[in-house]
Design a protein around this nucleic acid. Structure first.
Length: 609
RNA sequence: CGGGGCGUAGCGCAGCUUGGUAGCGCGGAUGCUUUGGGAGCAUUAGGUCGCAGGUUCGAAUCCUGUCGCCCCGACCA
């Protein structure tokens, strides 16, 4: 390809819309253009990158025996109603774009394809003899993100590879899951990305085990915690750890564990209490009041207890709540903190926020207009294991000191509701400490189990002749996100440094002075020869000064540059590695001999030979 | 939706406080010079100042409303 024909428009300044480096560079280098929030045009250069990523994905998926397919993006609501996800995905903060056709039929624009693929499997896969099957597609997905951002990182329209596997038993699912794990590692390595696999929360997709693949980068939206020995890595949403030991409360229990009243005027926070009375945060039980909303319409007040030095992990809380109530109340739509306004709307008297104890009675909810009239009470194990503690007095400006659970008449059932933090001790080895880093989630694999097949009655006939729901797995890779993550991980002050395996072009041939016919014709010759040798080559034939062409080449991130300059008269050219190092002078006739093996090697990315 | 910010030429911005009829840099076009790291000079095109209403002799500027976009939080590949 000739640069003059490339519709290349590069920008010198960063567009104001872009915040993170990868987004800025993709805009500046003419890879993408924004059409609306979260909706981007992939310009020809970007499309070449995406095709290369897709091809790596395709090759690795195919080599595991997975079958490529292409499923409809427009999906009937009925299918989603059968799985029970329609309302959760459309109502309230749902992420599915949906619409009505002229016949009044409701349709959704696919954010994911479990329903479609499961209904197909139910029709086509009748016998255990046909299993296992793993279907995948590479396709545009639609999600009505609340706040799209960072270019391709979180778009409302994005390209994803999604795969769905069907199995006769759980063991077989585990084997495919493990095969996907290996395939994913190869995919990211081949794309030249440093990625780490972390334990993850399954989120809205559901299922049991799940693992995310994170491209490590400071701009990443996820916090990941890893042990220094490398044996444990998890998303913070999911991470578990040992909390630091609590500082024992001097004096222990008082008044048989009912505690002694302490006057605490306006001391509503843990920090206030500690500085006023010399407590350690770990001596206090903090109480959070929240409201969970369910698909069924139920609005359930929650009372959550944590040790004062711990932070609530909302994902763990949501999972705990869903486990208790989702069976009868349908999917959990959301959890929000209780506020004075909300109490007022329910016709309830105000609560002493900041002074609430774990034993706050259900009486305070009596007469609520819509809420359930008793709290669901959840206690984190850090709080549950305290022998004696400080807590709110359930009236303004008072706390109690030397309280115990039995003194309050409560029997805590400890749950894990706290967020693990950097510096915490690991469960697998308390000598190991967790370290924090940031990551961009580029892949996620799930063992779904039989959640969807049961809901949608997708069954096969087993070896014993019984009708059984499929065991399922699903496996996603954000293809467009991966491409941008690559930029986030591989750039410098001059622009992008694509890993060669996914670079739009592998080499750019630059005649330093295009008006010099010797240079121009040698450049042309090398460009043709590279093309014949199967190299994706670019010829910068623009009537620009050398500096401009160099700058643009760096910005675009083409891995190799061949400069045909003053040396052209004697058949000498210069080879420059975008990753750095000194330019190499060489005879043009030797270029291919030198460059082809290099390119061949780099096409494997980070994969070991 | 809550909090913050911004809408002026294709892009990045100034002008607004103190109203007087729009400017800078980059980019585009043309010509000459230049030609190994985003060249120089000259000429030139391009703007309903987001939109609507109001105040005023006069509004980019003041007031009211509205729309849009960006950032922080809740959602996720």
């Amino acid at each position: 390809m000739r640069v003059s024909r490339l519709m290349l428009v590069t920008l010198r300044d960063n567009p104001a819309e872009a915040e993170i480096t990868s987004h800025q560079l993709l805009l500046r280098a003419g890879y993408i253009r924004r059409l609306a929030p979260g909706i981007y045009a992939y310009l020809p250069l970007m499309w070449r990158v995406l095709r290369k990523v897709a091809e790596v994905v395709r090759e690795e998926m195919d080599s595991t025996g997975a079958l490529e397919t292409l499923l409809p993006q427009l999906q009937p609501a009925e299918l989603w109603q059968r799985s029970g996800r329609w309302s959760g995905y459309t109502a309230g903060e749902g992420i599915m774009f949906h619409l009505e056709d002229r016949q009044g039929r409701e349709l959704g624009l696919g954010p994911t394809h479990e329903e479609v693929v499961t209904s197909l499997a139910a029709e086509l896969l009748r016998s255990y003899r046909q299993l296992p099957v793993n279907l995948y597609q590479i396709q545009t997905k639609f999600r009505d993100e609340i706040r799209p951002r960072f270019g391709l990182m979180r778009g409302r329209e994005f390209i994803m590879k999604d795969a769905y596997s069907f199995h006769a038993d759980e063991d077989c699912l585990r084997r495919t899951y493990a095969a996907m794990d290996q395939a994913y590692r190869r995919i990211f390595a081949r794309c030249g990305l440093h990625a780490v696999a972390v334990e993850a929360d399954s989120g809205a997709i559901g299922g049991s085990a799940s693992q995310e693949f994170m491209v490590t980068a400071d701009a990443g939206e996820d916090l990941i915690l890893t042990s220094s020995d490398g044996r444990y890595a998890a998303n913070q949403e999911r991470a578990v750890s040992l909390a630091a030991a609590a500082v024992p409360l001097p004096g222990g229990c008082r008044s048989a564990g009912t505690g002694e009243l302490l006057n605490t005027p306006n001391q509503t926070s843990i920090g206030d209490l500690c500085s006023a009375h010399g407590f350690d945060p770990s001596q206090i039980v903090k109480v959070l009041l929240l409201l969970a909303r369910f698909d069924s319409g139920r609005e359930q007040p929650l009372l959550v207890c944590l040790r004062g030095d711990q932070q609530l992990n909302e994902v763990k809380l949501a999972n705990a709540i869903a486990a208790q109530l989702a069976a009868e109340q349908g999917s959990l739509l959301g959890i929000t903190p209780l506020s004075a306004d909300m109490l007022e709307q329910q016709g309830l008297p105000p609560l002493p926020f900041g002074f609430v104890g774990p034993d706050l009675g259900d009486a305070v909810l009596a007469g609520a207009r819509r809420w359930s009239c008793s709290f669901v009470r959840l206690i984190d194990h850090t709080a549950a294991s305290l022998e004696s503690f400080v807590c709110g007095g359930n009236q303004p400006d008072s706390h109690r000191v030397g309280v115990s659970w039995s003194g309050l008449g409560l029997k805590p059932e400890p749950l894990d509701l706290r967020s693990a933090q950097a510096g915490d001790r690991c469960l697998h080895d308390p000598d190991q400490l967790l370290q924090a880093s940031r990551g961009i989630e580029v892949g996620h694999i799930f063992q779904l189990g039989r959640k969807y097949s049961q809901a949608m009655e997708a069954c096969f006939t087993s070896e014993t002749g019984a009708s059984e729901p499929f065991w399922m797995g699903c496996y996603g890779i954000g293809v467009s996100r991966l491409a941008q993550a690559a930029v986030e991980q591989h750039h410098d002050g001059n622009g992008i440094r694509w890993p060669l395996a996914i670079a739009p072009f592998e080499v750019v041939v630059v005649p330093a002075n295009g008006a010099d016919t010797t240079q121009a014709s040698l450049a042309e010759q090398l460009y043709t020869a590279l093309g014949r040798a199967g190299v994706d080559a670019l010829l910068d034939d623009r009537a620009e000064r050398a500096g401009v062409k160099f700058k643009d080449g760096d910005l675009l991130g083409i891995p190799w540059r061949v400069v045909v300059g003053r040396g052209a008269a004697t058949g000498m050219v210069e080879l420059v590695d975008r990753r750095g190092g000194e330019p190499r002078e060489l005879e043009a006739s030797h270029l291919l001999d030198l460059l082809l093996p290099e390119i061949e090697r780099q096409r494997r990315g980070l994969l070991e030979p």
